[in-house]
Amino acid sequence: MKSDQHPWLQWYPGALALARQILNGSDEAADIVQTAYLKSFQNVRLPNEAKAQRAWLLKVVRNACIDVLRGQKKFADSEQNTDVEVDCSPEQSWLQDSRKQRVHQALTALPIDMREILVLRELNELAYDDIAKVLRIERGTVMSRLHRARMALRKKLQGLENERGEV
């Protein structure tokens, strides 16, 4: 990250990952994040604190993604069955690392609410209070949902490892 870059850009990868998770890896994700950035800056009353700004940006991204999902549901209810196949560019060599590949696979198999909370916590490293703000839920719900998500991921991973063991 160059030092003369806009400070908010350090959150770009996390914001993009969030959009990708909610939208199932759709190409729209990058556009949505870009629009969210521009939209945020049209707003005069931004919070002063960096942590709050980050939560703010992620909230804008999430809401935009949800709007997209709503639109898709309205217009193409049948197409909504996007499966485990998330776009993977060929240069993504990490896919050859089988453990990471399985983690990736397990994550994609989780429902949206679990995926998004995992991205907010593990990649964006938000505190529970900030996650609560982004998702507009209680702090206690953040804790229980995150725990359920991790437990579900663990279970899926175990399933995948077993599958591999049997082959």
């Binding site: 770009y12 990952a17 990708r20 993504q92 990490w94 990471k100 593990e122 991921l153």
Partner: peptide, 24 residues
């Protein structure tokens, strides 16, 4: 594991960020 996977996977390009920086 998840943290590492997500970090490596984010798959954005420097050009993307640069373009956004210009816009901002």
């Amino acid at each position: 594991d998840l943290k590492e996977t997500l970090h490596e996977q984010s798959g954005h390009t420097a050009a993307e960020i640069e373009q956004l920086d210009k816009l901002l």
